[in-house]
Every structure is written in structure tokens, then in C-alpha cells.
Design a protein around this nucleic acid. Structure first.
Lengths: 221, 221, 221, 221
DNA sequence: TATGAATGAGGATTCATTCAT
DNA sequence: CATGAATGAATCCTCATTCAT
């Protein structure tokens, strides 16, 4: 293990490089990396662990990657991309009230968890180890996702659906905390991601509701 | 000689036990370790980082510890001990309804976050790196804490305060996920731990409430 | 990361086993280790010393070993295996009298000294540093060798060739002491191992003889 | 553990130093060091091991020694001094035949083994780690002892008591090998040092005898 | 005399990374 | 594409040694 050395990375390498060839293998590798990172964390995971999962020797990985960091980036990126994709709303939803939109968002995020490369809490702290360029890309995507959620919440507040005294940042932090932690313990659980998403949505929406509102339409929540 | 992963038997005994001498330093060290572990995670943290914070050389740390693992254990242990201490209820609370008890529990846990050595999400995954003995001790404490929460939830269910269709495990997982993640982002936030605790309690209790119940006494939640 | 005395469990598996790959190198390494251990002893020898002899960097040794202990074990094992191999007797010898068999045994042991990996007194004390499993294997082989010698001596005693008052354990201890020390000083000496063996045999056999017996056939000894 | 650093030792330090004060403690320490060195060897022994035996903390040892090497030197020196003392012969012995003198020498050496600080095979290889000055002193004493034995053997040869074809160096090597190894296994044995000495003398003397001589007076050997 | 605390130079071990084949 | 072999920079851990109290 070592502090990141990559002092000077060429920003414009021949993109003819890695990843393009043999998509299947590349996916395998990403999947393997995702699992190892989820279980042990980025630093505790050895390239050898990943290579072994795919049936390769460590050195062989370098046909596909340029550095270990590549895997972290690729995973964070694809995970966030999935999250951002789940940001797209069909016409109906797009015009619905905040509660509906939030519930839909949560459910779409939970669905994304099923695809193997998704947010496992631990990875996010390790973003700090990415190269400057990579890190800022990731952080920008995180910001976008965050913004999407905050917009919905603000919409709910101005529509009077959500309590006026809600701390928007607190709520979105809570939501992402829940989403990113889920994978860690959900495996052992018999609940489907959909069920868990239901519970999250119920908690959050009830929590967001203003007291009067809550008593009026509680049955629908 | 260095880190000889002494697989086998040490003809020489473990020497004198550390940790007790110079309580002040020991606390400093723990505090430093907690902060580093929280920021970078167990594996990414170098003993040097910790030593430097305390103004020692790396080797000097070994006057206080026997291995890096010791620090992980000490932190996990003290963190859980705090959590378990927060399990003690005054007479009034002990006889209160589930909602009251749960809210009190959450607030006490949040208060514990203020003491420097407290649950930072990341640490828990690294428990896997503890020695067998240490790990089983930690896991046992985790189980105790878990049990306490589940009992309250079950009480609420049988008293009719909480919805009957609640998944106890899911709820407690959610609660611990929230508690252990908090530290990660709370620093940047202007909310006090007490405020955050209020929000957690509100969300969880409303989430747990049965629909009718909710509409009836929603204003009090 | 270095020498983390990984007391506990390794979440990561031992990886692929070494030693078999590139037999030639492996032999070189063993030979180098044997020489260093003989000269300085196990503890005083640095892996760097061994690596340098083979023209490798210290870290590169770990492609072949898992720990320094591996080398100690491999050497002790191969040394004892040689010794045990020298236990095999041709038909003629097997049916000869004790004196003949003992002499033959000694000579075969001395021949074994020529092969580079052989008993150098110092190594045996360091066996204490082997892992439990390794140590018990070594000790078991030592016991076998010991038994072989004791059987011959007992045969000699019951055949009346050796004095009846001989202390079997004492004799075998003496023999192994001689065998294991030889290498230490024999290098500087101009005598061949065969000559030295002759002298050992002469001493021991005469020492073992009963007084009467001795005077009768002394010329043949 | 480290290669000996003492690059430049002042040859003429105030000898007012160590060892003089509190003879009792000093003896305890030497005794402890002797035992540890015998069991684990010089390098594997930590000053802490020795200190612990005496009930001191490691640092406190430095009131008595100047460096770990001091202990090795003191032990080697005292051990050889004992050996050389055993070189003194009473008038009768001094004028006896070689066999008698050799036997007497062996017995006196064996008696010396009882005093706690005596030759344990392992120590001798570690002499290489002494400072130049210390080492040459030790080697000089070794040479003296060696010479004494060789003289006796040569006397025996010229007197016709020992075979003429004997290799003097080989014999003395053998003798010292036996003497220095003894402690290693003698503990477990029920034989007294005197008994063992008898056996050594018998073997050597018979081994040294010329064939004719042997048959003539075998009963007396 | 003895101790507690710290130092610092090793030395073992790990692992990302390279590269010729 | 993959492997075997090697590299070397970290990082952990050990222990002789120092020194103020």
C-alpha cells in the first residue's frame, strides 16, 4: 500500500487503451472489483484478489487497467451514472407532486442496486484517493445527483406538501446515507430491494410531512 | 527485524502489556487514531499519521500498543461501550412506551457522537481484520446493542404503537446505518447532533406508526 | 505495509503457493540461505543477505517464499530427509552386525554433508521459531532418525558386540552432536568428510566395545 | 536487531564503569544472559528477556552494561577463563602420561559445566559479532585452550601411547565439539556430567590408541 | 539504582507496477 | 492476451540504546 504516487499523469494518453477490447472480460473485472471493494474496501483489496476472481494473474490485469485507481474511478463513475440515469422521469412523473417524484426516485435507485456495480458506502470515502481529474469528475456527478434530490424537496416545501421547517441538506444526506449503506447489510436480509425502498420512502415522506398534512392524508402514505 | 508476521510460536513472550501507562498519552493516541481512521479508513491510515498527530515517532507508538490492530479494537470497543452505556434508562424512561424509549435511545446515541471516539461508519467494515478473539468480542457487543433496539421495536408492536407489518430487522438496520453514517457528513453541517437526532427520531417513529395511529396523534410526533 | 504480525485472521487468502516455480532459482535460494544460516545463524541472517547472493532484491524473494521461516523449514526438512534417506541399507548391510551398520550409517551421513543443504549445528536450535505445524514435522523426523541409531546400538548390545553398560541415549546424542557440528569446522580442515567419518566410527565403535571384545578384535577396529 | 553499529569505540573509557558495583546483581544478570543465550542464541535474545529474568526493566540494564555485546563478551570470557583454569594440573597429573592428563582435563571441563556460565555451543558462533578488540581476546584464549589439548595429544603420540597416524587437529576439534554441545542436551538427560565425561574420555582415548596398544591394555581403558 | 518514555536504525513483508516472452 | 519473474517504494514492527527524573 502506498500513498498515491502518480505525480504526473499524462492527461491525453492514446485512448486506444484499455477497456475497449474484450468487453466481457472488462465487465468481469469491474464486477470482481466491485465485490472486493464492497467487502474489504479499496485499500484492503489487492489487485491479486480481483485478478484471482476473474482467473487471471495480477500482472495480467494491466492489460485492462492502467492503475488500481482506474477501477475505483470506473466503479464510482458507473455507479453515479446509474444514479443519474435514474434521474430521468417519464412525463407523468415529471409533473407529479414532490412526494411522488421522491418515491419514484428512491425506487429507481434501489433498482439500480441490483446491477452489480453500485454504490457501496465504503467506496465513497475512498474517492479522496482518485487523481485530481477523476475526483473532480466524480464530485461533480455527486453534486448533480444531490441537486436533483434537493430540488424535489424544495418543490415539496413550496407546494406545502413538506413541512416548512425541514433542513434540505439534512434530508438529502439522510437519503444518500441510506441508499449507500443498503448494500452492506441487505444481502443477509430476505427483503427485496423494492421492499426496502418502500420502507425508506415511507420513513422519509412521513418525516417530511407537515403535521397537519400528515393527519389528513396519512392513509395514503 | 521487522514485521515478521510471526506465524508460529514466539519463543519470547509478549513482554509487558501496554496501554495503561500514561493515561493521558494513551487518550491522545486513541483520539488521533479515531480521527485518522474516520478520515481515511483503517487501512489507509499509517501509524505514522497517528504518531505525528501526537508528536511521536512511529516506533514510539509501540510503547503503547502491540499492533495497529490494537487501535482498531480499542476504538471499536470504546465506541460500542459508549453505545451500550447509552442503553441504560432512568426509571421513567424504562417504563415509558416504545416511542419514548426509542427517541431517548437515539438522542443518547447522538450525544455519544460528541465524545471523540465514536462510531464512524467506516470502522465497522474493518472489524474483519481483528484477531479472532477481539472480533468475537466486538461482534458480541454489536449483537447486544442490536437486541436492545429490537426489543423496543417489538414492544411497540405488541403495544399497538407501531405498525404490525414492520420488519424489525430492517428498522434496526436502518437506525444503525443512520447513526454510524452521521459523523461522516455531520461535521460540515451546521446542525447540532441533537437536531439531527430529532430528525432521525421523527422519521423513524412516523415510519413505524400504523396509519390510523398516525392520523390520530400525528401532531404529537 | 510491513510485517504486521497479522495475529488474527487474514480476510485475504494466502494467495498462490510458492516454491515450485522455477526450480533452479529455488535451489539457488535454498543454497544461499543454507550458507548464510550456517555462517551467521538464522536470526542474524537478513533476507537481504540471501537475496543479494542470488542477485535479487529482498522483496523479490517473496515470489518464492512466504516468510523467512519457510527457508528455515525447507532447509531443516531437506537436511533431515537426506539423513533419513541415508537410513536405507542395502541387503548386505541390513543383515550385518551392529558395528558394520553403524559405520555404514556414519559414512552415509558424512557423504550427505557434501550436498549443500545439510545439518549445520546452529540451525537446530532455531527450530523453536518454526510454526507449530512445521516444528512438529521436523521433530518427528528427528525422532525417526534417532530411533534408527538407537536400534542399531541396542542390536549391538544384545548381540554382545557392544558393552552391556552403554547408555544408548548418551551414545546417540554424542553421534548426532558430532555429525551436526562437523560442518562448522570441517571447511577449514584438510581432511575429507570420509576421513572424518572414519575417525568418528573408530571412536564410537571402540567406545562401545566391551573391554574383552575390544582386546580380542581390536586390530580390526 | 541491527548490524553492530559501534563504529568507533573509545578504547580507553573510564573503567570506573559498570560491573564493579553490586556484584550480586551483575552475577544475576550474567546468569540470566547465559541461560537466554543458550536457549535462543545471542541474536534472538532480547535485552528485555534478560532484564525480565532479573526483575528489571530493559533500560535499567544499562546501569550494568554498555551494550548487549558486553554480555556476550563477559560470558565468552568467563567461560574460557574457566576452561583455562581447568588447565592447571597438580604436580602428579602434570607428570602423568598423556591419557591420564587428557582424561583429567575432560573431567575438569565437565565440572566447569556445572557453573552457570559455561560454553553452550551456540555462543561461539556469535563471537563474530564482538568488537575487534573483544573478539581477538576471545580468540586468543580459545587458541590457548586448543594448544593445551594438542600438546597433550602430541605427547601421547611421541610417547607411543597414541596411534601415530592420528590427526591432532581433528581430535581436538572433536573434543571441543563434544564439550560445547553437551549442555544443549545434557539437561534432559539423567546422566551426571561426570558420567558423560567418562564416556567422552573412554571414546577418545580408545580412539586415540594404536591398535596394538589397545589390545594390550584395553581392560584398563 | 531503577524507571518510564522516547528514539531511530533496521529488517520483514506487502503489493502496485513493469516487461520480456 | 496472458504469464512469470522481478522491482522498489511503502509501511509495520522490533529492539538496542538514551536520558531525565
Amino acid at each position: 500500500m502506498a500513498r498515491p504516487r502518480r505525480i504526473g499523469v499524462e492527461p491525453n494518453e492514446p485512448s486506444t487503451r484499455r477497456g475497449t477490447r474484450n468487453e466481457a472480460r472488462w465487465d468481469e473485472i469491474l464486477r470482481a472489483a466491485a465485490e472486493e471493494f464492497n467487502e474489504r474496501g479499496y485499500h484492503a483489496t489487492r489487485l491479486q484478489d480481483i485478478a484471482a476472481r476473474v482467473g487471471l494473474l495480477t500482472g495480467s490485469l494491466y492489460y485492462y487497467i492502467e492503475s488500481k485507481e482506474d477501477l475505483l474511478y470506473a466503479l464510482a463513475e458507473s455507479s453515479l451514472r446509474l444514479g443519474l440515469d435514474a434521474t430521468a422521469e417519464d412525463e407523468l412523473t415529471a409533473q407529479a407532486d414532490a412526494a411522488t417524484r421522491l418515491r419514484a426516485f428512491i425506487q429507481r435507485q434501489m433498482e439500480a442496486l441490483d446491477s452489480l456495480q453500485s454504490p457501496s458506502g465504503g467506496i465513497w470515502r475512498d474517492i479522496a484517493w482518485l487523481s485530481d481529474e477523476h475526483r473532480s469528475q466524480i464530485e461533480s456527478m455527486q453534486a448533480d445527483l444531490n441537486t436533483f434530490v434537493r430540488r424535489i424537496i424544495r418543490q415539496g416545501m413550496s407546494d406545502g406538501d413538506f413541512a416548512a421547517d425541514v433542513d434540505v441538506g439534512l434530508v438529502s444526506s439522510t437519503l444518500f446515507a441510506l441508499l449507500s449503506t443498503t448494500r452492506g447489510w441487505a444481502k443477509t436480509r430476505r427483503r427485496s430491494y423494492a421492499d426496502i425502498g418502500d420502507w425508506y420512502a415511507r420513513m422519509l415522506l412521513r418525516g417530511l410531512a407537515s403535521s397537519e398534512h400528515l393527519s389528513l392524508r396519512s392513509s395514503s402514505i
